[in-house]
Design a protein around this nucleic acid. Structure first.
Lengths: 224, 224
DNA sequence: ACCTGAACACCGTTCAAGT
DNA sequence: ACCTGAACACCGTTCAAGT
């Protein structure tokens, strides 16, 4: 596709979205992060290679290693770039606030499906801590007892995590959907209960997410 | 380590655990699956290579491809092998039953941490459907309305999924733990709420799992 | 039907240099 | 301080054969 041997080195990357201002150095952690995100969005988790990344940035492969320890570090960088939280800061209705935080969380991750696969295996970056902090504050404001707060936070975390990871993986690919469609006849007899309820045919992901979240919040809400 | 060039071909694999009975063919889907599981247990997700798998089985690399489409298929095989559910079939206390199903689910996955990373990106194998079916039956038996059953199942699924994936990844490696320990001083000032509650210091994973699950089940339980 | 080695088109990263 | 190409030690998989 692109010219291979030609002297495109030192040139600016084009079309990959992360354009540098003319006076900026070609290689910075920020530009590396931004380009990695673009590449992950475009080609998925396995689509990111150091070689490809370098080419998109118009540099030699090994130049990256001056700015970045290794490929893992690139993943970390990309993940934290994507997870930045800018949300309203005013607290009002604690339950509504929590729903907002979690729906926003899920939405950002689904905008970059690779992030869902990535997050669980990385350490907690600052941008995730911000979100957890927010959650914690909401729960306390809602009157959840101190002893319950941690369990509540983790259960909410688990819930978004699970929902997002699931949705991100066999959500969009309809090959799976068709496969389950076909299997549905035998399903009804082999697994009567989930066959009857049409569990695998439900494609209202957003609605189901919201309804399950309500279950969880019902359980978390302080009893009176 | 092992002799490289020596004629070990056609010999049985030793020490890898998946010993063949002498009259059995060297390569079967079952032996491939079992050996893959052993290898994944021992060396993690990235530790499984077709070349290594073949060597452990005492065959040439390409011989595997007669029994198996590609590496993805090996993952599928290994995952489904591990997820087999043998649990009591008698229904009694619906809530206790659900807790049992989920704790067993989580426990089996944590016994093979790679499975937690793998499951979300694969289609639902038969052994997972068995567990979902079980869940569905429990919920109905518990009086959960038909309209709520699907949302309830998915929320439970999300919960185990998230909890297991999280625990499997930054659970056992204590490098992360130490890192967060160090960051705790600044944490208190940057993130007062989660600093105060010691969210990141909580290491009672089992207890937290159980308590969060109770929140969820409280919300799911039919109101009266 | 089942197994094989050689070869291809990739990887991430080390190293010894260049400016 | 920043960038580089060549080389190393791997990958998964195609292909044309062997029995």
């Amino acid at each position: 596709m692109a010219d291979k041997a030609g002297g495109r080195r030192g040139r600016r990357a084009q079309g990959q979205g992360a354009e540098a201002r003319p006076d900026e150095p070609i290689l910075t952690r920020e530009r590396i992060a931004a380009t990695a995100v673009d590449m992950l969005d475009a080609k998925g988790l396995d689509g990111l290679t150091m070689r490809g990344l370098a080419e998109a940035l118009g540099s030699g492969v090994m130049s990256l290693y001056w700015h970045v320890e290794n490929k893992e570090a690139v993943f970390d960088l990309a993940l934290d770039t994507v997870l930045e939280y800018r949300g309203p800061t005013a607290l009002q209705d604690w339950r509504g606030d929590i729903v907002h935080v979690l729906e926003d969380w899920r939405a950002t991750m689904l905008r970059h499906p690779w992030s869902a696969l990535l997050l669980p295996r990385r350490a907690l970056g600052p941008n995730i801590l911000v979100r957890l902090e927010r959650l914690s504050a909401c729960l306390s404001a809602g009157g959840v007892a101190d002893v319950d707060v941690n369990a509540a936070i983790w259960s909410l975390w688990n819930y978004v995590m699970g929902a997002t990871v699931t949705r991100a993986s066999f959500g969009p690919s309809d090959a799976d959907r068709e496969a389950s469609q076909e299997r549905l006849a035998e399903l009804g007899t082999l697994y009567p209960s989930i066959g009857r309820s049409g569990l695998l045919l439900d494609d209202d992901w957003d609605g189901t997410f919201r309804r399950g979240l309500d279950f969880l919040l019902d359980g978390i809400a302080p009893k009176r």
